[in-house]
Design a protein around this nucleic acid. Structure first.
Lengths: 209, 209
DNA sequence: GTAATTTCTTACCGTGCGGTACAGAATGGC
DNA sequence: GCCATTCTGTACCGCACGGTAAGAAATTAC
């Protein structure tokens, strides 16, 4: 590998791209989100992205690499609330924002129903096994980040010292993933909010934040 | 349709079946459970069922009809705890048995990880749209049964009169479906039990059952 | 035995899949 | 102009899919 310069735009010779890769990724996200990994065929993708098949291959690699890039795009876009929520001051505020942000995203009119991380992971055929593992690892990663945040909350006195960060984080993860399934079944935003209220009743906290 | 006798075994002429349809259904359940609807090919199925393809077609109809029969088989077998749990005397006992029964099933060594109703419903391609709807309807049916049971609990004074049966049933459904996703991600039985303990802390009840 | 009936075996059909070869079109360098 | 370089469009490849036609094999009825 050569050392790359600061932002070297190395005189792009040759025929220029006729599409915006960022927009194309957006449209690919929409397809994968709606249909899952296996359910999205290359024809679906190229049609939505308004790109020919060899262009897709040249720009993004094969289908699986495109999917991974879409996952990054998803984490930075529609799912960005899940990382942003960790910065709330108290654990209760973190969890509250996490759950409400998820419920809003799951039932936003412009988005497909459900969560890409959950939709894509299940019911994939064997050939997509690495994709399944990737999604599992991303879900576990989010859960681990929350667990770390809850540990900090204990140190800060925000959660009681005998609280179990691992179980609590897993509990929240289950709520999120369950809401995703419910949203795919047609649950409305207010219904999800009703569930969040119940789920938060058992949240341990020293303050009534 | 002619009126059928009590157990008429109407002298089966012709070549007899060389397999047990019940066992074959068992093996088909295993395949669908592990791989989902779309992920299970006819070759996977016939290989596991030890049946030739035309035999499958003659006995069970096409792939979708076989899947529906497998769903019934699943409801009567591995998932039978979910209907049995409704007969517990108190709402708390119902929910407790429901959740623990699910956790046990999800992490039973002999079973595939996860829940057939959840695994199969998501990430299916368009062609299997009717299958997706069938699974959604079965999940909503289970939720409705629990809701009715909780309404009865209010009448019986087992739940406070201001409890919301619809939200509570949905809350439990979310826990179940979330556990299914977690089990597919590798969660262990004791981890799931830890979550159940947290989830039940917010359960309203007049007795400490 | 022979006919009738039902199941089993093999081999195949059309379709859509993910991925690619190849030639033509659009740019920069000179 | 004219080359090198890069992208686009079409048409194709091998493969696995769900589903089926046709005849051989196994049983009962008589």
């Amino acid at each position: 590998m050569k050392s790359k310069g600061h932002k070297e735009l190395p005189k792009p010779t040759g025929r220029p791209l006729s599409f915006d890769p960022h927009k194309a990724l957006d449209r690919a996200l929409d397809v994968f989100w709606r249909k899952g990994y296996d359910g999205s065929s290359l024809s679906d993708l190229t049609k939505a992205m308004r790109i020919n098949r060899p262009s897709l291959y040249a720009t993004f690699g094969d289908k699986e690499k495109l999917f991974r890039k879409v996952l990054d795009h998803y984490a930075e876009g529609p799912a960005s609330h899940s990382t942003a929520a960790l910065q709330e001051p108290t654990s209760r505020a973190v969890v509250k924002r996490l759950l409400h942000g998820t419920a809003d995203m799951l039932t936003s009119g412009g988005n497909p129903r459900g969560c890409l991380w959950v939709q894509g992971a299940l019911a994939c055929r064997n050939s997509a096994d690495s994709v399944r593992k990737e999604l599992i690892s991303r879900r576990l990663g989010g859960e681990a980040a929350l667990r770390q945040r809850l540990k900090r909350a204990i140190v800060e006195g925000d959660l009681p010292p005998d609280a179990n960060p691992a179980s609590l984080a897993r509990y929240i993860a289950i709520i999120i993933q369950g809401m995703s399934v419910q949203a795919a079944s047609g649950a409305t935003r207010s219904q999800l909010r009703g569930i969040i209220d119940i789920a938060l009743e058992s949240w341990p906290s020293r303050r009534n934040t």
